[in-house]
Amino acid sequence: MSLIQLKDIVKTYEDPKRKTKLLAIDNVSLEVEENEFLCILGPSGCGKSTLLNMIAGFEKQTSGSVHMNNKLITKPGADRGVVFQQPTLMPWLTVWENVSFHLMLEGVSKAERKKRSLEYIEMVGLKGFENHFPYELSGGMNQRVGIARALMLNPSAILMDEPFASIDAQTKSDMQEELVKLWEKHKITVIFITHSIDEALILGTKVAVMTRRPGTIREMMPINLPRPRDVTSDEFNSYKRRIRELLHEE
């Protein structure tokens, strides 16, 4: 039984000004297995973020259903940790307070919260920055805080919406590597949205290639490449060529 199931998802947006309907996602069905690293790849505007937002519970599909652990998803919850495109940290909270935000909601004591958050802060390589505020850190560091926060929820799945899109190339490649390590070590399930073919191939166990609007899944492609992935290898490039062809077919 797969962990997450999307069934016949359709999403239309109403444009109240022009009295028209826009079909954003057209009949997407998709299953995500436990411990899978699924990359959803597609051009901008293909509805890939919308898809993720539905799994997160932020947006509602027009028809179809999203299940996780056989339960219908109707609203956001801590069983799905989201890492946003921007770090989206509370600017008035320190790093450790941001990371352990959900423990505060549960009424866990301050000392306990701090102690437990340190482990995750260390995990994303930010030891020593726990008392800093987001404005004192770089974009990449803040994004790490966002990842630590999602990990600390100990969720069934981590949903990542182009989290490295606004990070410089060097930092990006470091963080991709670290993310893969975290995924291998902690046996988590990741759904990762990206518009970069390379990124999808560096990270994913599977890549779902989406087409331009209205978004559909063109192909679900298992990636059988050894890790760490070698971006210069022939196999890597033949996958890349396949995906490029799929994206250009339209």
Binding site: A56, P76, R80, V82, F84, T88, M90, F101, L105, L153
Partner: peptide, 8 residues
């Protein structure tokens, strides 16, 4: 969204 994701 981030807060509701964490169960607020």
């Amino acid at each position: 969204r981030a807060a509701s994701m964490m169960g607020s």
